[in-house]
Computed example of a mutant assay.
Amino acid sequence: MARDWPISGATLGKALTLPADKVATELDELDLFARTACSIIDRATGRHVDPARHELPDGSLPLEFTMSAREQAKHMWNQTKSGAGVRGGEPANAAPAGVGLLAKVSVWLAPYPPRIYYGSTT
């Protein structure tokens, strides 16, 4: 497991610019969103089957992973917690718009693909 991965709920709270008291009261929920975003990224980059894939020699992941996780989790949080259902638009149980890996996250992670085929080392 790479160090600092998955990102923490506190990291997500900072990315969302939530006040410290809000982070403290929502920490479990923030952790869930942060871990989910990292899981999505792990599947997109092949880390779900090879947890050491794309790790740097110091045991960390490239910075693009952290930025991607923050953006993905922020999007998921905003769609779920602050989306149309919260404001009175669509029903709260409707699927959030833009479900899946964000386009900019896909671009950031493009240099870190999953294996091309089973048994590949690239």
Rank of each mutant, 00 (worst) to 15 (best):
L63C: 01
S68E: 06
S60W: 03
A92T: 09
L56E: 14
M76D: 14
T17V: 09
R70V: 08
K22M: 10
S82M: 14
P19V: 10
V23N: 00
G83Q: 06
M76T: 13
K81W: 08
T36N: 11
P57Q: 06
N78T: 14
V99F: 02
E29S: 11
V107S: 11
S8D: 04
G13P: 02
L27W: 00
M76C: 03
T121A: 12
D50E: 15
L27M: 03
T122Y: 09
L56H: 06
M1G: 12
A94S: 12
G89N: 05
A24C: 01
E64K: 10
A92D: 09
R35A: 15
E71K: 10
K74C: 15
P57G: 06
T121Y: 00
A52D: 13
P111A: 13
G100P: 04
L109F: 06
M1S: 11
I116H: 12
Y112R: 11
A69C: 09
P57W: 03
M76E: 11
Y118Q: 15
L101C: 08
D4V: 00
R87F: 03
L109M: 10
L12G: 03
A84M: 05
E90M: 10
S8E: 04
V86L: 10
T36R: 11
A110R: 15
W77M: 07
G83L: 04
I7E: 03
S120T: 06
G85T: 04
A44F: 10
A94E: 12
S68C: 08
R47A: 07
R35W: 03
A34Y: 07
L63N: 12
A10G: 07
S39L: 09
V86N: 04
H48R: 07
Q79M: 15
I116P: 00
E64V: 11
T36K: 09
D31Y: 00
G85I: 05
H54S: 06
R3G: 00
L101M: 13
P62R: 07
A44S: 14
M1C: 05
A92W: 03
P111S: 13
L63M: 08
A15W: 03
F33V: 10
A20C: 01
K74P: 01
I41W: 04
L30F: 03
A95F: 02
A37D: 09
R43G: 06
R35C: 07
Q72Y: 02
K14L: 11
F33Q: 05
P113F: 08
I40E: 13
L18D: 09
P111C: 12
L102Y: 01
L102A: 12
G100D: 02
T121V: 09
T121D: 13
K22C: 02
G100A: 06
L18V: 08
K14F: 07
T25L: 08
A44W: 04
L61H: 09
W77A: 04
A20H: 02
